[in-house]
Write a protein that binds this DNA or RNA. Structure first.
Lengths: 333, 333
DNA sequence: CTGAAAGCGCTTACAG
DNA sequence: CTGAAAGCGCTTACAG
């Protein structure tokens, strides 16, 4: 069963069948209908390999997640990202091939992606600082999109959440509730995410003409333990609120605050970032910034599809907005 | 850069280059070396689409997991399975395409798998009772392997863990420790897994000439809550040990036993099944049957590869053995 | 709007 | 052991 068969059954040429399948406008409506009928009735699907060879496009995208599978599945972030990517690929009629960074396969994977012609474009999640894949992709000008802004500020196309304004909004919310001694626990220093959220915190204070105080800024590392330690230090400066750059750190902060005999939110309001599943079940439930993770995946595919279709010149960037989820830890009620 | 280029650079024909790439024995050693040198130096990789079209094989396998992505990643089973499958595919030089059963895409996915020629074979995990994909695969005699024995006992190739003898071994271990009133909490009635593990329990008793007592068998549903309820009922019959057909149920059973003021393992020994991560951290740590999940994935790929290479006639079955992980809940020490 | 034909980059009988 | 050639099933200028 191939194009020729369909052509004969429809009384047209192979070319015309191909045009119908590919939605070319240059087909007479009656002819199109006739061919479509045959297509439906035979349940015909064109051979992918032949299509790819003739057109030069496989319509297969690669999704590379540089994590071991075990880690990957511990974190609620990646399932949602994968879901978004797969969903959007379906919309765009792409297939997607998932690669996890099992170290041994890495070099081979890069070769395969770059040279075999199987993959038309790549989505890379959370790249490390010196990812050899990214360098290889850039060097060959292979189409790709990164999810999450690259730390070194390489000139690459990416989609990300707008960490700066999200953090700013969280801080402004605290200010709106009357808090004036607002502390922050930062992410890992040197990471873009950490730096951006700290910038947002600063902009929030500045917007309300509040002075920044060294004693109200403590370094965290995105872990609960780090959040706990940072909060212990911050308590010396008697904050009336704290913005933690991740929910895990917020969880640690809550523990430190409660151990000090203080009440949340009465004495210290707490806001986190991420809206991981446990945030809603904390005591008290955590006010936090929810990231549109699934949409991030979709946006990456959308951008890549545009690049593939229109060959965008400059690396594009897309920032998605977040949602402030208000629960009781900030004292809104 | 294509075969022709390499052929010219090596001073041979396209055919010979192809033979070298495909490890055909019919190439003179010197010639092979010469071509290999050029191949290395140019870092050439043959075009996958052309290869597929000419040979009729894409060397791409599909991995279908009929779960939504959220559920998928909640369970530690699947990451390991995926890891096993991907690892083995790498060994066999296959690429793998992951499909999750997002309901909306299902019909389309089936069509794509069956008709587009993209996929050479499929591995299907944990199929539902009336999976349309399986029926479609059987009807078209499309090569596939199921992970986990099919409930309806359809005549399909599968790999699975030997649930019967694993359960039997767990029970025999309890008997070996002197327990005589051994209860069991079964899995969901009607599932193969549940039935097989119950069979193993029965064989274990019979082997020691212990009579089976209705009061010592309670129906569970693989959940913690189900295990708790089942254990409450079982306690009426004063068991001195219980074999739960899953760790989650064992966890519920432990709670019920402790609430009744009994000690584990002194009063009641407990053995589970699965060895999920929390099993080792229970109080007391849980003796349980560890499944070789990653190997299950590898075995599925191995079997599928054999089918693809040699066209096995009868549906093959492979049963992997498990390991009894002895911790303190069974009273070995 | 439509068809005949070239071409995508391989593999694989076939002949030698 | 090696090469010339057909063929895999499409897409896409090209001509009409």
């Amino acid at each position: 069963m191939n194009l020729e068969t369909i052509a004969q059954m429809s009384g047209v040429s192979r070319s015309t069948v191909s045009r119908v399948i590919n939605n070319s406008p240059n087909v007479r409506p009656e002819v199109r209908e006739r061919v479509l009928a045959v297509l439906r009735e035979t349940n015909f699907h064109p051979n992918v390999a032949a299509r790819s060879l003739a057109s030069g496009a496989t319509r297969i995208l690669g999704l590379v997640i540089p994590l071991e599978v075990r880690q990957l599945f511990m974190d609620p972030y990646f399932p949602l990202l994968i879901q978004g990517v797969m969903g959007a690929c379906n919309t765009h009629d792409y297939s997607v091939m998932l690669w996890l960074a099992e170290p041994e396969y890495e070099r081979r994977m890069i070769q395969q992606i770059l040279h075999s012609g199987l993959i038309n474009g790549v989505i890379v999640s959370s790249i490390q600082s010196d990812d050899p894949l990214i360098d290889a992709l850039i060097e060959r000008s292979f189409p790709f999109v990164v999810v999450g802004r690259s730390p070194e500020g390489k000139h690459v196309p990416y989609v990300d959440v707008d960490n700066v304004s999200s953090a700013r909004r969280a801080v402004e919310h605290l200010i709106g509730l009357g808090r004036r001694r607002i502390a922050t626990i930062t992410g890992v220093p040197g990471t873009t995410v950490g730096a951006d959220r700290l910038d947002g915190y600063r902009l929030g204070l500045r917007g309300a003409k509040l002075a920044e105080q060294p004693g109200l800024i403590a370094e965290g590392d995105f872990t609960q333990e780090g959040g706990y330690r940072a909060m212990k230090a911050l308590l010396q400066a008697h904050p009336d609120a704290v913005f933690a750059a991740s929910d895990s750190m917020a969880q640690g902060a809550v523990r430190a605050i409660q151990e000090a005999g203080l009440n949340i939110p009465q004495d210290v309001a707490v806001v986190g970032f991420d809206d991981v599943p446990f945030a809603a079940h904390m005591q008290p439930p955590l006010t936090t910034v929810r990231q549109p993770i699934e949409q991030l995946g979709r946006a990456a595919v959308d951008l890549l599809a545009e690049m593939l279709n229109q060959g965008l010149e400059q690396p594009q960037h897309r920032l998605l907005t977040t949602e402030l989820i208000i629960r009781s830890s900030c004292g809104s009620e």
